[in-house]
Design a protein around this nucleic acid. Structure first.
Length: 242
DNA sequence: GGATGTTAGAGTTCTATGAC
DNA sequence: GTCATAGAACTCTAACATCC
């Protein structure tokens, strides 16, 4: 069973091969009957507007998740969030695409595979503002308990994008853990903090990346990295030799 | 010339507050 | 409960300076 298909994948499948369970070819006499069965099967699977909308929303979710390379668990979670929103009648007055994008954003956070609103916006057909507004609405109405995204969750993806070795990744996580203990991450954008930690770690590990390179991968500006990395270096007493 | 640092001004988001 | 407003915090762009 899966939540990512509107009928949860529980309806009967009649394939198009015209062969029985033994692999034998179906006689021409029975083919016409099978054809009729397929036709009704198709009509019954999506029988009303609600199911049609759900099917559309779930295919939209799947399309966005594929474009972002998200794992199956995130897709299932997003589908569950969307179905809950439908059950609570939260879609009324909002676009299907907007709610689907917001559900995906929430699912990413729930599954600790965070994607920024900008990234969701890139693969969706709605604006960042709309996604953010809908996300806040459904998370409040569905009482989704979502903690602020940890910068650590961004480290593997950013390091991979920068072709950095595991050592740099470990060092970045270590820096971020220390920063978190000293409350240097609260109130700051997680991508900016993660980018700054990776920038520091890349220098400390001798695999230096420029601020521009890190900024491009993290989707923040060089200025943000400068501000964040100086804070981290000062508060954590890290000596950086450029 | 490229990387980095500094600064100023502006935009966005969030939260608190008060009026209705 | 909803809406408008103000203020804080963060981030952005842009311009210019400094260093190697």
């Amino acid at each position: 069973m899966t939540y990512t298909i509107h009928d949860k994948g529980l309806s009967t499948m009649i394939d198009w091969r015209n062969r029985d369970s033994y692999g034998k070819s179906i006689s021409s006499k029975n083919r016409a009957q099978l054809y009729r069965l397929r036709k009704w099967q198709r009509r019954i699977r999506v029988s009303n507007a609600t199911e049609r909308n759900l099917a559309f929303a779930l295919s939209e979710l799947d399309r966005m998740a594929s474009a972002l390379g998200l794992p199956r668990t995130v897709r299932e979670t997003a589908a569950v969030v969307y179905r809950k929103a439908v059950d609570k009648n939260l879609i009324r007055g909002r676009s299907i695409e907007g709610v689907a994008a917001a559900a995906l954003y929430a699912a990413c956070r729930q599954c600790s595979v965070p994607r920024t609103l900008d990234e969701i916006e890139e693969v969706s057909r709605v604006s960042r503002k709309e996604i953010g507004r809908t996300y806040r609405f459904i998370s409040r109405e569905l009482a989704l308990k979502l903690m602020p995204t940890s910068p650590i969750d961004y480290v593997p993806r950013f390091c991979s994008g920068l072709n950095l070795k595991g050592e740099v990744q470990s060092k970045s996580v270590e820096i971020l853990r220390q920063a978190s203990e000293k409350e240097l991450t609260s109130g700051r954008g997680p991508t900016g903090v993660a980018a700054a930690a990776i920038y520091i770690a890349s220098i400390l590990c001798g695999e230096r990346r420029t601020q521009r390179e890190v900024a491009d991968v993290a989707g923040v500006t060089e200025v943000t990295i400068r501000n964040r990395y100086k804070e981290l270096a000062e508060e954590l007493d890290i000596e950086i030799i450029l």
